[in-house]
Design a protein around this nucleic acid. Sequence first.
DNA 1: ATAGTGACTCCAC
DNA 2: CGTGGAGCCACTA
Length: 134
Amino acid sequence: MNGKFCSLNHENYQDGPLPASDALSAMEKIWFIVAMIPEGHVSAYGNVADLAGLPGRARYVSKALKMAPDTLQLPWHRVINSQGKVSFKPDTLPFREQVERLRIEGVEVNNGKINMKHFEWRPDMATLVLQLPF
DNA sequence: ATAGTGACTCCAC
DNA sequence: CGTGGAGCCACTA
C-alpha cells in the first residue's frame, strides 16, 4: 500500500490553488474519495473534486484516475461526468470496460447513460466527517 | 511566456 | 435530447 496515501490527515489539508509540492497529496485525496464510492453507485468528476476539497478541478480528477497505481484497485468505473454519462467515447475499449464493470455491480447503463436518480452516490455528512482523513 | 490538451462543467440555443 | 462555446485547471512542449 502506498505510504503517502495512508498518511493523509487533517494537517495536509489546504484549499485554493494547487501548490506544485502538494500535487501528490491532492491526487491522494481524490483517490481516497473514489475509494469511498459504494458498489452499485456512481459520482461525477466534479463531485469527487468537491468532496476532496478541490472545487473546480474536475479535470484533475480524470488525470488522477489515469495516474492511479493499479495496486490501489480503485473503482474508477464509478466516476462519470455531470451529465450522468460515461466520458469515454463510445465504441472504444475503455468505454466498454467501464460499462461492463458498472453493469456487473447492478448499475444500468443505456447508451452510456446512467439514471442519476437511482444510482448517484449521496453520502451523508456523518459518513464524510467520520471517514475522511483530511 | 505562449499555446495546446484533456476520462470536465455550465449555459444558451 | 444535441451542439457549440466559453470557462476551467494542471500539465506539457
